[in-house]
C-alpha cells in the first residue's frame, strides 16, 4: 500500500522515514534465519518480500530525486535512540537463549512493537492526512492485531505453542494503535478525512 502511494503520487508526504528505517532494521534482525533455516516456500517468499519492500521504500524516501523532496524532515523528529536502546537492552536481558541470533530476533520483536511511534507522532502533526497514509497505518496495525486471533487458535490446537515474548509484544504493539483506530473508525463512519487531535 505504501509503495503504491509513493509510486503513484511520486510523494512520501506524511510518511515517517524513521519508522520505515526501523522496520528495515526489524526485518534484517529477524530474518537472519533465511541463511540457516527453511520453513516453507511461502515463509521464505514473504520474508524476502518484506525485506525488499522495506528497502525499496527507504530508497525512494532517501534517494529518489522527486520523492525525497516531499519528505518532511523537520516534522519527523522522533529520536531513534529512544526506541533502539531500550529494545536492545531488553533483548539482552529478556530472551529465550543468549545467542547472537536469538538476541537479535528478540530485539526485532521488541523494536517492531514500538516502530510505529515516529509515524504516529508525525501524523498528529499533519493537518491533512491522505487516505492512503491513513489506510496504510490501519493495515499495519491490523496485521499484528489479527495475529492475536491466530495465536489464540494455535495455543488451543498445538501442544507446544508458547511464545510469551511474541505474544506480549504483539499485544503491546496492537495497543499502541488503539487511539489511532478509534479516530480512524470515527472518521470512517462520518465519511470524513482522518484528523488526529493534537
Amino acid at each position: 500500500v505504501l509503495l503504491l502511494k509513493i509510486r503513484a503520487t511520486r510523494s512520501c508526504r506524511g510518511i515517517s522515514l524513521k519508522t520505515q528505517e526501523l522496520y528495515a532494521l526489524v526485518f534484517i534482525c529477524r530474518y537472519l534465519d533465511l541463511f540457516y533455516s527453511y520453513i516453507s516456500l511461502y515463509n521464505t517468499v514473504m520474508k524476502v518480500t518484506y525485506l525488499a519492500t522495506a528497502f525499496s521504500i527507504v530508497r525512494y524516501m532517501r534517494f529518489d530525486k522527486v520523492v525525497r523532496q516531499t519528505y518532511d524532515k523537520e516534522q519527523d523528529t522522533f529520536r531513534y535512540i529512544f526506541l533502539i536502546a531500550p529494545c536492545a537492552l531488553l533483548a539482552l536481558v529478556l530472551n529465550h537463549r543468549f545467542s547472537p541470533t536469538e538476541v537479535l530476533w528478540t530485539f526485532s520483536i521488541y523494536l517492531e512493537a514500538v516502530a510505529i511511534l515516529p509515524q504516529l507522532v508525525l501524523m498528529q502533526r499533519t493537518q491533512n492526512i491522505d487516505n492512503l497514509t491513513a489506510n496504510y497505518v490501519a493495515l499495519l496495525g491490523a496485521y499484528r492485531g489479527f495475529y492475536i486471533l491466530n495465536w489464540i487458535y494455535r495455543f488451543a490446537t498445538e501442544k507446544h505453542y508458547r511464545q510469551w515474548i511474541v505474544w506480549i509484544s504483539g499485544v503491546a504493539q496492537t495497543a499502541l494503535y488503539a487511539d489511532f483506530f478509534y479516530y480512524y473508525a470515527l472518521c470512517w463512519k462520518a465519511n470524513q478525512r482522518l484528523q488526529l487531535p493534537a
Binding site: S37, I39, N43, Y50, H96, R97, E102, W105, Y147, R162
Partner: peptide, 10 residues
Amino acid sequence: EDETGSKDEL
C-alpha cells in the same frame, strides 16, 4: 531443545 519452538511466523 529450543524452547521458542520453530519460528514459523513473520
